[in-house]
Write a protein that binds this DNA or RNA. Sequence first.
DNA 1: GGGACTTTGTGAACAAACGAACAAGGTCGG
DNA 2: CCGACCTTGTTCGTTTGTTCACAAAGTCCC
Lengths: 230, 230
Amino acid sequence: MDRKRRIPEATVARLPVYLRTLLEVQAEAMTTISSERLAELAGVNAAKVRKDLSYLGSYGTRGVGYDVDHLLVQMSRELGLTRDWPVAIVGVGNLGAALANYGGFGDRGFPVAALVDADPSKVGTMFGGHKIRDLDDLPALVEELGIAIGIIATPAAGAQEVADRLVAAGVTSILNFAPAVVIVPDHAQLRKVDLALELQVLSFYGQRESIGASLREELGVSAESKESVG
Amino acid sequence: MDRKRRIPEATVARLPVYLRTLLEVQAEAMTTISSERLAELAGVNAAKVRKDLSYLGSYGTRGVGYDVDHLLVQMSRELGLTRDWPVAIVGVGNLGAALANYGGFGDRGFPVAALVDADPSKVGTMFGGHKIRDLDDLPALVEELGIAIGIIATPAAGAQEVADRLVAAGVTSILNFAPAVVIVPDHAQLRKVDLALELQVLSFYGQRESIGASLREELGVSAESKESVG
DNA sequence: GGGACTTTGTGAACAAACGAACAAGGTCGG
DNA sequence: CCGACCTTGTTCGTTTGTTCACAAAGTCCC
């Protein structure tokens, strides 16, 4: 396998799934796991698991499988999860507030360190233990709190400006929840979560399904299993 | 282009982005748009736009561009957005409650028609104008309200069972927010939204970035623009 | 009405991702 | 210490997706 270890994007996106799966396996006191079993639990193909893991290095033992603890250490290191990544949530509306309350972040090494909003009537008020700060404070927050990741939870109209300001303040990792196209410079990383898009894609396939269902019924075709991972 | 019109998955995932972009363009009273301009607004390559749109049929006019209204009609039809898709949210905890309140769904043709929870102390109480129903009521809800899409917003442990129950009740489109691998039969559609995963992917690239940044500085390489869409 | 100009639609080259298959390498019982 | 057995790591053909480049098709000005 590539000694340069340039890990393909598709693999990077699967590593967190393996990580979570391995944590569950570890909790059940299993010390070793085969690619076959891991594949089953992670809902992917076994060959893919082996190839993905091989990018991390050769940490398996032929005839035995992978050492769970060792794999977890390597994977955490590779994903950069050996440190905390303080997060700032920009936009404390419906969604932003929910994310701030969610709590699932801090557990996993992504503490919510700051809440930011552009609305002067919100700035200065408290929410979930944080005083809401102004957009203009971003550079200071990055400096003081070491904000590494910005979450955009504003309406679509404000998203691009928020992204620009985040980048200007030195935040190079951005997660966009706003239903808008956002462009960032090449040195920054942007990922998006788009609820409407997901529903519309489901709608697309759901529409065909009605045709497909009657067709399947006619032909007596049975359902094979299909997976996805959450 | 393929006359069978089997639209590639990657294209399906971009159609909602074009759709949203076209709605904005329409709001500005533009009647026609070129692939170049649409590509810019949607944050993709112009050739990709043309190829994607060609799967819908030949709706452009050479030398002119695409008729915005016409394209919107065709695209909505293809995405199955000419009807409403009633949604059931399963799991009225932090996230489920936020989604129920969000409101951005109903606007776009995905009305929240039911809230469901397995917790007996929640069942029967009101939330956001809905009486929370029991998981066992799912088949009845599908029958009465025509639930077409199920949103899983439960803790990880319950996700697979909820999915099974949704499918058993006849819901074949599922959006999973729970941080767990969920498997559905082949005739069902599953998509996932995984916040921890997104943050961990950002962490992966963020980690390299510190190395990359100093390197870039040394070499005096400037940033090219990069896009993603939300 | 003709020619310059614009923009689409698609063929073809390229790139990324996938999955089957298998040799290499290691375990473990006897 | 050997041979049967197991599981990894990797090669290879296939599929899917992206991008370039250009002919075809239309507009619009003169």
